[in-house]
C-alpha cells in the first residue's frame, strides 16, 4: 500500500519535472508555450458547459422524479434471477449514466455492508472497473463538436454491461 501511495503522489510532479527538464534542455520558451496551450483550456471548458448542463439536467429530472428508482425496482427481480445480487443492481444501472451518483451509491453500499463484505468488494470493483459512458461521450464529442455519435453509445453500453457481469464473476471467483 505504501508503495502504491508513494507512486501516486510522486507521479504528477515527476511528469512535470521531466517535461520541463527536456524542454529547457532543448532551449524552448517553456512559459510562453505553456500559456499558449493553456488558453485553449479556457475555451474548451466554456464550450463544454452547454453539453454537460443539458445532459445533467435531463438525468436530474429522471432521478428526481423517482422514475429511475421505479425502473430499478422493476427490473431488479429479473436481474436477480440471472444471479446479479439485487443490492448491486442500482449501482450497475447508474454507473454508465452518472458518475457522481454512482460514487455516492458505492459509498453507501460500502458503509451499509462494510468494505470487506461481498457487496462492499463488488461495489468497489464495479466502481473502479468501468467509467461513466454517458459523461465521457458527452464531454469528448461535445468538446470537438461531433454531432453524430455513430455506434459509440451502443458499443459503450454493451461494453459496460459486459464489464458488470465480469466484475460479478471475478469477485465471486476471487473472494467467493
Amino acid at each position: 500500500m505504501s508503495i502504491l501511495t508513494t507512486i501516486s503522489t510522486w507521479i504528477i510532479p515527476c511528469i512535470i519535472l521531466l517535461v520541463l527538464l527536456v524542454a529547457t534542455w532543448k532551449k524552448l520558451p517553456t512559459y510562453e508555450i505553456f500559456v499558449e496551450g493553456g488558453k485553449e483550456g479556457v475555451k474548451m471548458a466554456v464550450s463544454l458547459l452547454p453539453f454537460l448542463l443539458g445532459m445533467m439536467v435531463s438525468i436530474a429530472i429522471l432521478r428526481g422524479s423517482g422514475a429511475l428508482e421505479a425502473f430499478i425496482d422493476l427490473i431488479s427481480p429479473v436481474l436477480s434471477v440471472l444471479g446479479i445480487p439485487s443490492d448491486i443492481v442500482p449501482l450497475a444501472i447508474i454507473r454508465p449514466i452518472s458518475g457522481t451518483a454512482a460514487l455516492g451509491m458505492t459509498t453507501e453500499l460500502i458503509s451499509t455492508f462494510g468494505p470487506d463484505s461481498f457487496i462492499g468488494r463488488l461495489a468497489s470493483t464495479m466502481q473502479g472497473s468501468t467509467d461513466t459512458t454517458l459523461y465521457i461521450l458527452t464531454v469528448y464529442f461535445g468538446a470537438v463538436g461531433i454531432r453524430r455519435m455513430g455506434d459509440a453509445l451502443k458499443v459503450g453500453l454493451i461494453a459496460d454491461f459486459i464489464g458488470i457481469i465480469a466484475s460479478i464473476v471475478i469477485v465471486t471467483i476471487v473472494f467467493g
Binding site: 520541463l20 527536456v22 524542454a23 532543448k26 524552448l28 517553456t30 508555450i33 505553456f34 485553449e40 474548451m44
Partner: peptide, 19 residues
Amino acid sequence: LISVLVFWLGLMRVAEKAG
C-alpha cells in the same frame, strides 16, 4: 474543469514541442 484543462493542456503543449 478550467483549472485542470488549462494546466494540463499547457504542460502537454510543452511536452509536445519538446518531442
